[in-house]
Amino acid sequence: MGTENVPSSIVQFAQLDKLLYLCRANSLWPMTFGLACCAIEMMSTGGSRFDISRFGAEVFRPSPRQADVMIVAGTITKKMELAVKTLYDQMSEPKWVIAMGNCAICGGPFKCKNNYNVVEGADKIMPVDVYIPGCPPRPEALLEGIMTLEEKLTGSRRWPRIQPEKIGSLT
């Protein structure tokens, strides 16, 4: 399925749309929802050391109707596939999906010849906006994923991106 082509509306309000997307990017409410061990890292992101709330994204809503972004944190098994799909369908538009961890990206370690019960990637069942690699990804990586989603919405990045070689020189 991959990405979804949403036809753009006929009437466009350029500045208003920009404002709305800026607001949406700054209050991305995730859904209280975890599938496997990546969810532990997601909880840690909400905790005091990493603190997702700095970006206004700590409001984990228990109901899919109120959530904006679904963080698929963990392995989607065939048994959970229907539940995850239903939750995605229940979310009200506009909605985004972050695939967190290798299992949600492509099935991760379960993508093998004898795989019988793991869905190989969240993008098999719904459109995914941001992929966060890692097994599991560190909380910083999830924050980076949220910032990438903000960049996708607003077109500009919150902070300048640090080059990997600079990180190497710092340590």
Partner: peptide, 12 residues
């Protein structure tokens, strides 16, 4: 930001 986002969300 929260208010504008909630207002512009789909009325389901």
């Amino acid at each position: 930001a929260d208010g504008l986002k909630l207002m512009s969300k789909q009325l389901l």
